[in-house]
């Protein structure tokens, strides 16, 4: 293999989709992110207080060109906020928003440039860091043979979590099989309970799998981070988010974000409202339950 060849050269035809996907995991101003490159695509990982982790998967199918030349899986750190602000600069209206991403530059930078006419162009070089430690592995696995999971309209989930802001710092999520329902309950300064019942709200609660009652508490601020920056396109596309509770109460929240150009988005949507998987970025959040959890088991 040519040692001078960069680890990665890829092109994306719609930078706004990438901005949307990365913004979804930007829950505070200063966040360090780790980027991992592989032959399958780009994964960006952010973490908070050892209790919350988010991953954005940008598979190679999202890119119009993806040339991977590294051995192993190169990892580097950078500031998420700066990365998003920088990418956002490339998505100026009226400008082609196709970009080329290259790593590493001569000084291990991440290099970005617009791919368009010869007469004007945007470029950026971002300093990268050596990631400090291997990020703590959240090691999500189901506790029982059948996973405890439900899928809810993303807009409804965001609204519910936003509404739970006033009661307090800790939110209890309960799944019960009979009647099949999900309950979000916050008590602190006051208490508020939000129920999604499978039979009453079939348009909101799209799927539900639960064979035993389970209940865990999560810090509100971490729960809120999972939906606080969901891009508008997710709500417009009327997508659902999948929540799964794994071993020890670890909560996984999955969102789908469209990375397709808006003008070409519709041909990909079939009658069921799903887009071709190749034009979707997957976003996963892992939230650890609070220490003194009340899992009834």
């Amino acid at each position: 293999m040519d040692s001078d060849a960069p680890d990665l050269v890829c092109q994306l035809d719609n930078v706004q989709g990438m901005v949307d996907a990365l913004t979804a995991v930007r829950w505070k101003r200063h966040q360090d992110a780790v980027i991992e490159l592989s032959e399958h695509g780009i994964v960006l990982i952010v973490e908070d207080s050892n209790c919350l982790q988010a991953k954005v998967y940008l598979q190679r199918e999202l890119f119009v060109r993806y040339e991977y030349g590294a051995q192993g899986r190169p990892r580097f750190g950078l500031s998420l906020g700066l990365f998003v602000d920088c990418l956002n600069t490339f998505s100026v209206p009226g400008h082609s928003s196709a970009i080329e991403i290259r790593y590493p530059g001569p000084d291990m930078q991440l290099l970005l440039k617009s791919v368009e006419s010869l007469d004007s162009g945007i470029y950026a070089e971002m300093r990268t860091r050596i990631p400090e430690t291997i990020s703590w592995d959240y090691n999500f696995e189901p506790e029982w043979s059948t996973p405890l999971t439900f899928t809810v309209k993303t807009a409804a989930l965001k609204e519910a979590i936003d509404d739970l802001e006033w009661p307090g710092a800790s939110i209890q999520i309960t799944l019960q099989p009979a009647p099949p329902s999900v309950t979000f309950r916050g008590d602190g300064h006051g208490d508020l309970q939000i129920d999604f019942t499978y039979y009453a709200n079939p348009d909101l609660l799209i799927a539900f799998h639960c064979d035993r009652q389970v209940s865990h508490r999560y810090k509100y601020k971490f729960l809120r981070a999972t939906t606080s920056n969901i891009p508008g396109s997710v709500v417009r596309d009327n997508r659902g988010s999948k929540l799964t509770i794994g071993r020890g109460g670890l909560l996984k929240v999955q969102h789908l974000v469209s990375v397709a150009r808006t003008s070409t988005a519709h041909p990909h949507i079939d009658s069921a409202g799903y887009q071709q998987p190749s034009r979707i970025a997957y976003i996963e959040f892992f939230v650890k339950p609070e220490e003194e959890d009340t899992a009834d088991d």
Binding site: D119, S120, I122, Y123, A124
Partner: peptide, 12 residues
Amino acid sequence: TTLITLGAEFRK
């Protein structure tokens, strides 16, 4: 800046 260089060029 120390972390990033971001620019645009318009020619002709």
